[in-house]
Design a protein around this nucleic acid. Structure first.
Lengths: 152, 152
DNA sequence: GTTGAAACCGTACGGGC
DNA sequence: GCCCGTACGGTTTCAAC
């Protein structure tokens, strides 16, 4: 796949659409100085190239019943075994993110659950599904998250 | 602020729109069995109630030049001082999320930067801005993230 | 990239349950 | 209260340039 670099207008469009996924082509055109059609062609290119991987509504976790979140670091019980923890854990919808990390643990998960009781059950499920030890850090308060990551 | 609970249709709409922030009212109507007007009224209610806090395009960090991410735990140097680290750090755009946490550290940050060099500079900025110690865990690979968090 | 025209969509309003 | 149908203006789409 080719990789003609993003120019300033692309970055500008990405910044706007990252902040407002429903921005109209007309607004994007106004903010970039291009015509509506030119903007549309660029957006389609950005989607095709994988620069834009999707669009989502941001949902308040509290309102939909998952007010408790936590970081869970996991480490395989047997380092000799093949390690495919991400695949083994993918089916658990409470796991919002899964990163492999440098440091003592092998992976860092970010999870959302309804209650401490559900967190306990989830940790049990994770340990069992992936044969890992866990180290859980409960989130007390979230000051901000989901901030758009398109550098100026 | 009232809080009439979300019914099954609301949750269904949230699930669809969380996965596809550009889903049309027509599609939401088809998937929920309601008319376009009814769906529109519900979406507006969900936005007004704060169940939907916004819409965004998901941008590939690699493509926009921030391929390196990390978790940074921070702890105030002087526990006696008033602790307003989140406000002191808000101006740093590389910080994508800031949570206060239970455990040894006070806050967990998630950051994105272009290079190890930039990570070093960011850590220095954080220490200086908020008068904190830091403990950084570099992300080696992200298997998944941004998974929609609307429970079934 | 641009223009323009047609199809589609979001919105407001009227009405019925 | 919640829902449906319709009409209008804005938006997306795609051809031709």
């Amino acid at each position: 796949m080719p990789a003609s670099a993003l120019d300033d207008i692309d970055l500008r469009l990405l910044r706007v659409v990252a902040a407002d996924g429903r921005a109209t082509l007309a607004r994007l055109a106004a903010e970039s100085g291009l015509s509506v059609s030119a903007v549309q062609a660029r957006i389609k290119r950005l989607e095709a190239r994988g620069a834009i991987t999707g669009y989502r509504a941001v949902v308040d976790p509290d309102v939909v019943g998952v007010p408790l979140s936590a970081f869970i670091e996991i480490t395989p019980l047997d380092p000799a075994q093949p390690d495919n923890a991400p695949e083994l854990l993918e089916h658990l919808p409470q796991i919002e993110a899964c990163h492999s990390i440098a440091g003592q643990a092998a992976y860092m998960l970010f999870v959302r659950v309804a209650s401490p009781r559900d967190l306990e059950a989830l940790i049990r499920d994770i340990r069992q599904a992936a044969a890992v030890n866990t180290r859980t850090t409960v989130v007390l308060q979230t000051f901000f998250e989901n901030r758009a990551a398109v550098p100026r």
